[in-house]
Amino acid sequence: MASSALEDLSFHINLKISTIKKTLQLRNIGQEPSLKSMLSKIGQEMVLLHDLLNKMEVEVQQHEKLKNMLKELQKSVERDQTEVQHLRENIPPHLPKPTRSCVAGLTVKREDQTKVVEPECAKKPTKEPRLIKEAPLITAEEFESVPAYMKGRLTYDQINAVVQEMNKAVVGKYKILHQPLKSMNAAVRNLYHRYLEEETKDTKGQFFIVEADIKEFTQLKVDKRFHSILNILRHCQRVREIRGSRLVRYVIC
């Protein structure tokens, strides 16, 4: 056992020495003027290779998501097929006759008199829901068109994740603004009044949020990375800024 352990230790030490020698040799080679340009090219190729690997990783993730969605769709279709087959094999011999209570313009004869019965189940028209504008996700083509100095190490998925979170904040804010005052508690009413105070003549008819809304409705950190993504969203015309009263309003384009 002692001999084996000693051999392992010796091998480990020799391996470390060999690694150090190779490192020193590479460092010395790097100082030669004739090889500096070659090493620079190798470095550039490594950067391009790293970007290519990032793109491949994004593509693999998207294909993985698509595969999972197709699996779920297949399961759903199989369930529907089973239910349809069951219904087909178990059709009841006597089906109920349709009722007449909701038939518009039904004619009823009573003692040689004819009158038109108005439909009893007509419902009052419901109010159309107010639409809340959301920013569309960035497309792959748009992502490719963003300058490299803007993107840095940011990925396509990271940018669209921020778009989705900002949309969540927009929906959360304007649901409160469209809510009747009587149904609000004290906390929601405070938010409602803050939203009204943040409106200006430039934001009339626009959908916008501020940093406080992002913190209220999302888990996003308003940091340097977030502002880098905002630059990309402005470049792709997803948001624009309106400044005033010490506030930056992010308007959905």
Rank of each mutant, 00 (worst) to 15 (best):
R238E: 01
V188Y: 01
A104F: 02
L52R: 12
E32G: 05
K67H: 06
V146T: 01
S145N: 12
E241P: 01
R249K: 13
L24C: 07
Q25T: 14
D51S: 09
F207T: 07
K36R: 12
L247S: 01
P125A: 08
H94W: 00
N14F: 12
F11R: 12
L48C: 11
K173G: 00
S245Y: 07
Q44E: 13
L70K: 10
D157N: 09
L196W: 02
K215E: 10
V162S: 01
Q206V: 04
Y195D: 02
E165R: 15
P93C: 00
M38E: 08
P180S: 11
R240I: 05
A161I: 05
K224S: 13
T99Q: 08
N160Q: 06
R27N: 05
M150Q: 06
L24F: 08
E141S: 10
S34N: 09
L154P: 00
Y156K: 07
Y149E: 11
H63W: 02
Q206I: 00
V84G: 00
I159S: 02
M166R: 04
L48Y: 04
K215G: 00
S18Q: 10
K16R: 15
F207S: 03
T107V: 15
V239G: 02
T200K: 06
R246G: 11
R225S: 09
L230I: 15
L177R: 07
